[in-house]
Nucleic acid binder design. Structure first.
Lengths: 195, 195
DNA sequence: TACATTACTACATTGAATGCAGAGATGCAG
DNA sequence: CTGCATCTCTGCATTCAATGTAGTAATGTA
């Protein structure tokens, strides 16, 4: 019941923020405005989100967790690049299923493609995800001696997929085409490193 | 003469900032402190740097310009991945020559590896650099029809090199080893895509 | 009913960043 | 040398994100 109320205000904040961002733009909207629209105090906003940017990228961590689970569950019978490719594929499916489908995410994507501040924030989170993926891979493949090689592979994979997605979205591709582009990019990196 | 004075205050600001960051840490240092140490007003700081973060990443654009020139100068006799590899190689050499050599850059690298705020800023700049590289490649190779494929390649290249560099630095590699790791990462990506 | 937990609020404060008006030095015309 | 224009730099006020603190009110529990 308490949990419920907390989640309601959280979602009210997200809804208010996205709506205001859509109407006025990201920078023109203050946190105070968002809080007022959601009928809470400004201070409450920061109890739910560590920063203004996080309200746009809410629940993005969840996807990383899924990818990490794939890596940790798979044992030693599959090669490292293959497992990495599978993990990335899992994230692609997740993104295709939620972000590219719902209407509110449409606004989010547009914001992420246009507001530099949000791009930087996303990259920051992505960097963090990369680190955790590298750690997970090293735990699952302790025989792979060189961290730097693994890190480079993960960096290439993440860089290729996100760059492909960004350009496909900017070009106005359909959700199906975007996922296809991401998948193709991931495939090229994985294929190259497995030989 | 006027130009000279301006550059002197700029360098005084950088020196003051790096020194204060080293002694007190990045977040514990205020812009007002930096300005006071450099004997200028707080307002002047923002006339030289658009944000506090930029004082650490000063003159990083220059390197990107060098890479772009490589891409634009090369005609059509070399393949796209090869030219991209050459451009990245140029940047690697530049980084090895300046950032990894001088003592002040030592502090900068340490800051970039530890302060999340700076990492986000660097990623923002990196993203911008990627865009410009993609544009330059498309100008030099108009016959390459798919932007997304080019973008994915550039993303993979930049992602691999930066990730490799970050992990090599974090591990405590010597400057020579770091550049070797970057070069190896770039080579793997370039080699894979050229076939 | 008493107690603890917790979401939330009000208030104050710090610090980054911007706008504006003006002072003072530098370079350049006549 | 004298005006005039062009800069850099300053001081001041302001906005806004973000944090610390203390306290209120409601919910859950013994």
């Amino acid at each position: 019941m308490r949990e419920r109320k907390k989640r309601r205000t959280r979602e009210a904040l997200i809804a208010a923020a996205v709506e205001l961002f859509r109407r006025q733009g990201y920078e023109a909207t203050t946190v105070a405005q968002i809080a007022a629209t959601a009928d809470v105090s400004t201070r409450t906003f920061f109890l739910h989100f560590p920063a203004k940017e996080d309200v746009v990228l809410a629940d993005a961590d969840m996807r990383v967790e899924l990818a990490l689970r794939i890596i940790e569950e798979r044992g030693a019978d599959e090669s490292l690049p293959d497992v990495l490719a599978a993990a990335v594929e899992r994230m692609i499916i997740e993104v295709a299923g939620s972000d590219l489908a719902t209407g509110m995410a449409d606004v989010r994507v547009k914001l992420m493609l246009t507001v530099p501040e949000l791009q930087a924030w996303m990259m920051r989170r992505l960097l963090d995800a990369q680190r955790r993926i590298v750690d997970a891979l090293r735990r699952s493949y302790p025989e792979e001696s060189d961290v730097v090689v693994v890190a480079a592979l993960v960096g290439a994979m993440v860089g290729a997929v996100t760059s492909a997605a960004a350009y496909a979205l900017r070009r106005g591709d359909t959700p199906g085409e975007v996922t296809a582009a991401m998948r193709a990019a991931a495939g090229r990196v994985a294929h190259s490193s497995s030989r």
